[in-house]
Nucleic acid binder design. Structure first.
Lengths: 129, 129
DNA sequence: TCACGAACGTTATATCATTACGTCCTTAAT
DNA sequence: ATTAAGGACGTAATGATATAACGTTCGTGA
């Protein structure tokens, strides 16, 4: 069920995200796809939603922006390390700690359906200076 | 340094957040403060920024909304359990796992300055049905 | 009392996201 | 082949969130 054929718009959006090391906003994507005939934000948002449902794209909440997902288990929780200097976003999987987090909230009866973990700071390159 | 006297607008905003179990957007706050004389979004945003710097308020990135912070160490990382049914947001501190997360990203040289952890799901009450 | 910085209020505008509506294309049953 | 249904599309309008620019007022300390 994870492998549906993508529509043209979905493929265009995914390709642009995959080409970028930084997260792109919907309007960034729209600008980069004008030459392909896209005109309106909703076209991008529709593609992003479909891609998100297939686990191919993640939304970075703290940036109102999106990244291509580097193909872990789509249902695994993902964390994102975001360099506030150069914009580079690197995704990392969540092995041990995810359950720890869930149970932390779960102890009070909370049922976790979606978790967002975002680290902001400086990537290795930008931290050097 | 954590205890600065609050301005009138800051106190008004903080009070409204403290009264609410759900996160409130800046515009929610503005609506609730019209009677107090507030007119423009920027007034609310300015108060929110100042309160955030003092660790009295947190932004919930995935909701574009804000909550009063329940007085842990302001520099400790906080996680938020957000009930998508009733909107209740409960904050929890991050004991062990924070360092684990930081080092996960840190292993690749990432220097973490801010981390956001948001759990979406159902609170105990809403999970029962 | 006056100089300075912080906070303020007002207006305008930028940025992010969705609703509404009608059309076209695919697909599968007939 | 025909057609009904659903999905994706394009266009237009609007809603929701956030900031910029500007001049004024307020509080504090010299």
């Amino acid at each position: 069920m994870t492998a549906r054929k993508l529509t043209r718009n979905q493929q265009l959006v995914l390709d642009r995200l995959a080409d970028s090391s930084a997260a792109l906003t919907a309007y960034d994507l729209l600008d980069r796809l004008r030459d392909e005939g896209l005109r309106a934000p909703v076209q991008v948002y529709r593609a992003l939603e479909a891609l998100g449902q297939q686990g191919l794209v993640h939304r970075i909440e703290s940036l109102n922006a999106f990244v291509a997902c580097c193909g872990h288990d789509p249902h695994a929780a993902a964390g994102f390390a975001i360099c506030d200097n150069c914009g580079e976003v690197t995704e990392f999987a969540f092995p041990a700690s995810e359950e720890g987090l869930k149970s932390l909230a779960g102890a009070k009866g909370f049922e976790t359906r979606r978790m967002t973990v975002e680290l902001h700071g400086r990537c290795a390159t930008c931290a050097e200076r």
